[in-house]
């Protein structure tokens, strides 16, 4: 018998602190598997502030822990001084799309040759379920307890759509992890996002629609269903930008 599925080498043996059923774990595994495939000599990751704040304990490479929202700037600093390293930033929706909006937009606009893994679960998980920049209209959060009201809170931000309007990025795709088929599609997207960096093609970002069973107040199974039935309607999956196709 041969092993057909095992833990990626790019993950440490430390159990994660994520809640049961949280798909941050899947995003870690997919990212780690993509890096495993590269056989890179140098890899440096940047962890965010938010639920993934301890990502530096889980990825089995050199890591830097950035201030809230600043991961793309930190990754830029690293990549520019060690251009032959694979540099990735791992960020949540509050980190990337709220406090760190300037950093992600400008890293994308510069076409910075880094890979960004953007985990969008439409809520602030670590701080206890507050409204996120990606919280959907009508979705409940502890700071919009009757549901997000456009009159009060405005509209959620569609990051992949927005960044794809810039000239800088090479590759932007939104994926989801609600079943095995979509996990495999997500893996392909993340693989490509890292391969683009190896080939020096510039900024790639994969937005992963993820669950937050704890703060959504749902079971892990129901959370997956919510991603499929609700989130994917608001945030359609797909490739939003791919300059590698334009070149071909």
């Amino acid at each position: 018998m041969a092993i057909v599925f095992e833990k990626p080498k790019m993950l440490t043996d430390k159990p994660t602190h994520y809640c049961p059923g949280c798909t941050h774990g899947l995003a870690h595994i997919l990212t780690a598997k993509a890096i495993d495939k590269l056989n890179a000599k140098k890899v440096i990751g940047v962890a965010p502030v938010g639920c993934a704040v301890f990502a530096y304990e889980y990825f089995n490479c050199d890591m830097q822990e950035a201030a809230h929202g600043r991961a793309p700037a930190v990754a830029t600093g690293i990549k520019r001084v060690i251009p032959d390293a694979i540099v990735f930033a791992y960020q949540g929706d509050g980190d990337l799309a709220s406090i760190g909006m300037a950093e992600i937009v400008h890293a994308a606009a510069r076409g910075e040759n880094i890979t960004v893994i953007f985990v969008n679960n439409a809520i602030y998980g670590m701080t206890g379920g507050q409204m996120a920049p990606t919280t959907m209209i009508g979705q409940k959060a502890t700071t919009c307890q009757s549901g997000r009201d456009v009159a009060l809170n405005g509209y959620p931000i569609h990051v992949s759509e927005m960044l794809s309007q810039l000239q800088g990025p090479c590759y932007i795709e939104r994926v989801a992890c609600y079943d095995v088929k979509h996990i495999k599609q997500a893996q392909k997207a993340i693989d490509k996002a890292f391969q683009n960096q190896v080939e020096g093609r510039g900024f790639s970002m994969i937005e992963i629609l993820a669950t937050c069973p704890t703060n959504w107040g749902m079971s892990p199974q129901d959370s997956l269903k919510y991603v499929e039935d609700v989130m994917c309607k608001v945030y359609p999956l797909g490739v939003y930008k791919d300059t590698t196709k334009e070149e071909a």
């Binding site: 440096i44 700037a73 600093g77 690293i78 001084v81 300037a102």
Partner: peptide
């Protein structure tokens, strides 16, 4: 060497964090 005109002072100091943390004289 490396020069970037960043999008803000906030971003500039965090680029210093990244580059300095990677061992560069930033």
């Amino acid at each position: 060497g490396v020069f970037i005109q960043s999008e803000s002072e906030v971003s500039a100091i965090n680029m210093v964090y990244g580059a300095g943390g990677a061992g560069a004289r930033a």
